[in-house]
Protein backbone atom coordinates (compact mmCIF):
# COMPACT_ATOMS: atom_id res chain seq x y z
CA UNK A 1 0.00 0.00 0.00
CA UNK A 2 1.31 3.44 -0.94
CA UNK A 3 2.61 5.65 1.81
CA UNK A 4 0.59 8.81 2.26
CA UNK A 5 2.22 12.17 2.85
CA UNK A 6 0.59 15.45 3.83
CA UNK A 7 2.33 18.62 2.60
CA UNK A 8 1.33 21.83 4.38
CA UNK A 9 2.51 24.95 2.57
CA UNK A 10 0.83 27.99 0.99
CA UNK A 11 3.53 28.24 -1.71
CA UNK A 12 1.44 26.60 -4.43
CA UNK A 13 4.11 26.03 -7.05
CA UNK A 14 6.58 24.44 -4.66
CA UNK A 15 3.93 22.12 -3.30
CA UNK A 16 2.74 21.27 -6.80
CA UNK A 17 6.27 20.35 -7.82
CA UNK A 18 6.93 18.37 -4.64
CA UNK A 19 3.65 16.54 -5.10
CA UNK A 20 4.58 15.60 -8.68
CA UNK A 21 8.04 14.48 -7.59
CA UNK A 22 6.78 12.44 -4.65
CA UNK A 23 4.12 10.81 -6.80
CA UNK A 24 6.92 9.60 -9.07
CA UNK A 25 8.44 7.99 -5.96
CA UNK A 26 5.12 6.20 -5.51
CA UNK A 27 3.83 8.22 -2.60
CA UNK A 28 0.24 9.40 -2.28
CA UNK A 29 0.23 13.12 -1.53
CA UNK A 30 -2.35 15.41 0.06
CA UNK A 31 -1.90 19.16 0.19
CA UNK A 32 -3.14 21.70 2.71
CA UNK A 33 -2.54 25.41 2.15
CA UNK A 34 -3.29 26.63 5.64
CA UNK A 35 -3.16 25.45 9.23
CA UNK A 36 -6.89 24.86 9.64
CA UNK A 37 -7.08 22.76 6.51
CA UNK A 38 -4.02 20.81 7.70
CA UNK A 39 -5.64 20.09 11.04
CA UNK A 40 -8.88 18.99 9.40
CA UNK A 41 -6.96 16.54 7.25
CA UNK A 42 -4.77 15.37 10.13
CA UNK A 43 -7.87 14.68 12.23
CA UNK A 44 -9.59 12.97 9.31
CA UNK A 45 -7.04 10.38 8.23
CA UNK A 46 -3.73 8.83 9.11
CA UNK A 47 -0.64 10.01 7.28
CA UNK A 48 2.71 8.29 7.14
CA UNK A 49 4.60 11.57 7.16
CA UNK A 50 3.77 15.26 7.37
CA UNK A 51 5.90 17.90 5.66
CA UNK A 52 5.02 21.36 6.87
CA UNK A 53 6.07 24.98 6.58
CA UNK A 54 5.85 27.18 9.68
CA UNK A 55 4.71 30.44 8.07
CA UNK A 56 1.29 29.40 6.87
CA UNK A 57 -2.02 31.20 7.27
CA UNK A 58 -4.23 30.53 10.28
CA UNK A 59 -2.90 28.04 12.80
CA UNK A 60 0.81 28.16 12.29
CA UNK A 61 4.18 27.25 13.63
CA UNK A 62 4.55 25.40 16.90
CA UNK A 63 0.84 25.38 17.63
CA UNK A 64 0.12 23.47 14.42
CA UNK A 65 2.78 20.90 15.30
CA UNK A 66 1.39 20.56 18.82
CA UNK A 67 -2.16 20.06 17.59
CA UNK A 68 -1.09 17.45 15.04
CA UNK A 69 0.77 15.59 17.80
CA UNK A 70 -2.37 15.72 19.94
CA UNK A 71 -4.59 14.33 17.21
CA UNK A 72 -5.71 10.73 17.60
CA UNK A 73 -4.68 9.55 14.17
CA UNK A 74 -1.35 11.32 13.69
CA UNK A 75 0.16 11.54 17.17
CA UNK A 76 3.08 9.31 16.11
CA UNK A 77 3.37 10.53 12.53
CA UNK A 78 6.87 11.84 11.76
CA UNK A 79 6.84 15.56 11.00
CA UNK A 80 9.46 17.31 8.91
CA UNK A 81 9.52 21.11 8.87
CA UNK A 82 10.43 22.86 5.62
CA UNK A 83 10.77 26.59 6.17
CA UNK A 84 12.60 29.76 5.15
CA UNK A 85 12.93 30.67 8.85
CA UNK A 86 16.47 29.81 9.84
CA UNK A 87 17.18 31.18 13.30
CA UNK A 88 19.00 28.73 15.55
CA UNK A 89 16.66 29.30 18.50
CA UNK A 90 13.60 28.50 16.42
CA UNK A 91 15.16 25.36 14.93
CA UNK A 92 16.19 24.09 18.37
CA UNK A 93 12.74 24.91 19.72
CA UNK A 94 10.93 23.11 16.95
CA UNK A 95 13.19 20.04 17.14
CA UNK A 96 12.66 19.94 20.90
CA UNK A 97 8.92 19.82 20.19
CA UNK A 98 9.42 16.42 18.60
CA UNK A 99 9.80 17.27 14.94
CA UNK A 100 12.02 14.76 13.14
CA UNK A 101 13.93 17.16 10.97
CA UNK A 102 14.10 20.81 10.03
CA UNK A 103 15.06 21.73 6.47
CA UNK A 104 15.76 25.34 5.59
CA UNK A 105 14.62 26.76 2.26
CA UNK A 106 16.04 26.84 -0.40
CA UNK A 107 16.01 23.08 -0.29
CA UNK A 108 17.16 20.24 -2.51
CA UNK A 109 14.29 18.03 -3.58
CA UNK A 110 16.60 14.98 -3.71
CA UNK A 111 17.51 15.54 -0.08
CA UNK A 112 13.84 15.82 0.89
CA UNK A 113 12.99 12.60 -0.89
CA UNK A 114 15.95 10.84 0.76
CA UNK A 115 14.91 12.08 4.22
CA UNK A 116 11.30 11.09 3.69
CA UNK A 117 12.39 7.60 2.71
CA UNK A 118 14.72 7.46 5.68
CA UNK A 119 12.00 8.43 8.18
CA UNK A 120 9.46 6.13 6.64
CA UNK A 121 11.93 3.23 6.87
CA UNK A 122 12.60 4.14 10.48
CA UNK A 123 8.93 4.26 11.37
CA UNK A 124 8.47 0.96 9.59
CA UNK A 125 11.20 -0.58 11.76
CA UNK A 126 9.68 0.87 14.93
CA UNK A 127 6.25 -0.43 13.97
Amino acid sequence: MRKRILIVDDELLVTKYLKARLKKEDFAVDIATDGQEALKKAKGRKFDLILTDLMIPNVAGRELIMQIQESALNAETPIIVLSALSSDELIVDVLAAGVKDYIVKPFSVNVIVAKIKQFLQLSLKVA
Binding site: M55, N58, V59, A60, E63, L85, S87, L90
Partner: peptide, 10 residues
Protein backbone atom coordinates in the same frame (compact mmCIF):
# COMPACT_ATOMS: atom_id res chain seq x y z
CA UNK B 1 -6.11 34.91 21.01
CA UNK B 2 -5.32 32.04 18.62
CA UNK B 3 -5.26 34.43 15.67
CA UNK B 4 -2.96 36.80 17.53
CA UNK B 5 -0.57 33.98 18.49
CA UNK B 6 -0.41 32.93 14.83
CA UNK B 7 1.05 36.20 13.62
CA UNK B 8 4.23 35.94 11.58
CA UNK B 9 7.03 37.76 13.37
CA UNK B 10 10.22 36.64 15.09
Amino acid sequence: VHTLLSLNYP
